[in-house]
Design a protein around this nucleic acid. Structure first.
Length: 495
RNA sequence: GGCCCCAUCGUUCAGUGGUUAGGACACCGGCCUUUCACGCCGGCGACACGGGUUCAAAUCCCGUUGGGGUCACCA
């Protein structure tokens, strides 16, 4: 059995967007599932638009997602000789010919064809059978030329089997003599991509369905060059709610992988969500906490044939991206073994300058850290929540949010209740769930106030938040001294 | 316009001749909780339309409509 080899060939003309990320993910999953190899190839032959910065960004995006590759990155531009050699062979063997039509002439004829409401608007074959004399005359004139593939004519058709779309049959009359080498001598995608896939011994091509149409052309190329034809699997596109192709120009940051990194997604949760968009095993399972779990079940035949919609509403204050993506991330946040999660939270704390090394070192501090994560992670959706809503757990330097502040000024009595509570809690030994609860409730009973009043005020004072974990769990997580200090700090004038 | 693809709740994924058309997210109720979340219980909500075929159609066929792809010296 020959080794399965797949590739991910992004063109470095922008950041890694979610469509590309999904393609990369599927290729990676397929390679890993089959013990095959993933080749990374940067297709930088579009000199106008390719940039080194973009290539770097794409690599970083893949690394963040945790997708590694076995070969490359190769840069397509380094293999121009291969592409030209293929073109020369095609020319020499009569599978291709030089065309001297200029861009302007072509455009003119195309427009004329459209004006005549002609169905076929491809190349008309004008230079297909130039005599040696005609060709010499054009050359003498100094006319530039492109190289065109001599597509078969007549009644036949090209056939290939697609792992997702099944059998495809395209009539010869749908395929014109397409250009394979520009007048500058630089080969085009359709040729260079096939030549690279052949050189890299690619066995399976998993790519976007936007390539479905030029697949028959590439099959023709493979056949003319005597190369084995790889297996194709085309995956439908991801659209926005208006059914428009997603693009940076139209959608901005939300469609870039970097957005998810910065927003506080766990890399694999992001992959989990992306994988689910347009694919399934046929079973109900949706959460795959680790790559191995998805590798085990991944099969390209589970890719749906229909385009899927990335359900994103611009400007939605509650959902910064597809709600399902947020949900998947939240599930990972609370289902992951806490020790595993802690590494991600550590990075988030480091980013905000709140990290303390003892939290990783074991012992009491480590234990406190993990227990605290257990306490708060259940209500978070993003890693950033640990340093925003959860900030007070990790530093004394936090703000009291407006909603919480209201709970502090609800009753003038609070000005003395809070310090009084601080005193009582300070005197507690042990300081645990039961003793703190007893102390608080006793105080409220003595002063004749509702427990809720003090509870909510205490939560605001100690965590800066109007909502959060149970108040006594919060006290215990913060510890006796920090709790007391914060309760006093809330109303310093009365203290 | 030609060619190709697609069509099940708002989104997503099931369901390949006989199902009360299922799950997840979102949304709405309730329980739990003197907060929020989790959890649990319940609700809303879909087979685009029209013809066939069949005892029987979301499932098969044809057409219509709608959406997408593509028709470059981009990739």
């Amino acid at each position: 059995m020959t080794e399965i080899r797949v590739r991910f060939p992004p063109s470095p003309t922008g950041y890694l967007h979610i469509g590309g990320a999904r393609t990369a993910l599927y290729n990676w999953l397929f390679a890993r599932r089959n013990g095959g190899k993933l080749v990374l190839r940067i297709e930088d032959t579009d000199e106008e638009r390719s940039t080194e910065a973009s290539a770097k960004g794409i690599l970083e995006g893949l690394e963040w997602m945790g997708l590694d590759w076995d070969e490359g990155p190769y840069y397509q531009s380094a293999f121009a000789d291969d592409h030209r050699a293929a073109a020369k062979r095609l020319l020499d063997e009569g599978h291709a010919y030089r065309c001297y039509c200029t861009k302007e002439e072509l455009a003119e004829r195309r427009e004329a064809a459209i004006a005549r409401k002609q169905d076929f608007i491809g190349y008309d074959g004008r230079c297909r059978d130039l005599t040696a004399q005609e060709q010499a005359a054009f050359e003498a004139e100094g006319r530039p030329s492109v190289i065109r593939f001599r597509a078969p004519q007549g009644e036949g058709s090209v056939t290939f089997d697609d792992l997702v779309f099944g059998r495809n049959e395209v009539s010869f009359r749908e395929i014109d003599d397409f250009v394979i080498v520009r007048s500058t001598g630089v080969p085009l995608y359709v040729l260079s991509n096939a030549a690279d896939d052949h050189r890299d011994r690619i066995t399976h091509v998993l790519r976007g369905a936007d390539h479905l149409i030029n697949t028959p052309k590439q099959v023709l190329l493979y056949q003319a060059l005597g190369w084995p034809v790889p297996v194709f699997a085309h995956m439908p596109l991801t659209l926005d709610p208006q059914k428009a192709k997603i693009s940076k120009r139209k959608h901005g940051e939300v469609v870039s992988v970097g957005f998810y990194r910065d927003a506080g997604f766990l890399p694999w949760a992001f992959c989990n969500f992306m994988c689910l968009l347009g694919w399934s095993t046929g079973e109900d399972r949706e959460i795959y906490l680790h790559p191995e779990e998805l590798i085990e079940v991944f099969d390209p035949s589970g890719i749906t044939r229909r385009n899927s919609v990335f359900n994103y509403t611009p400007g939605d204050p509650k959902f910064i991206t597809d709600p399902k993506a947020l949900h998947v991330n939240a599930e990972h946040l609370r289902q992951l073994p806490v020790a595993e999660l802690s590494a991600h939270v550590q990075r988030q704390l480091e980013k905000e300058g709140l990290w303390r090394p003892e939290w990783a070192e074991g012992g009491e501090a480590r234990e406190w850290f993990l227990t605290t994560l257990e306490l708060i992670r259940v209500r978070y959706h993003l890693l950033t929540d640990f340093t925003t809503r959860g900030r007070a757990f990790f530093t004394d330097d936090f703000e009291v949010e407006p909603k919480a502040a209201k709970n502090l000024s609800k009753d003038p009595l609070l000005a003395e209740l809070l310090p009084a509570l601080a005193d009582r809690l300070q005197a507690l030994d042990p300081f645990d769930l039961a003793t703190t609860e007893e102390a608080l409730r006793a105080l409220c009973a003595e002063r004749g106030v509702k427990d809720g009043l003090l509870i909510n005020a205490a939560r605001a004072a100690t965590s800066g938040q109007a909502v959060g974990p149970g108040i006594f769990e919060l006290f215990v997580a913060l510890g006796r001294d920090r709790t007391a200090a914060r309760l006093r700090r809330a109303h310093p004038s009365a203290a």
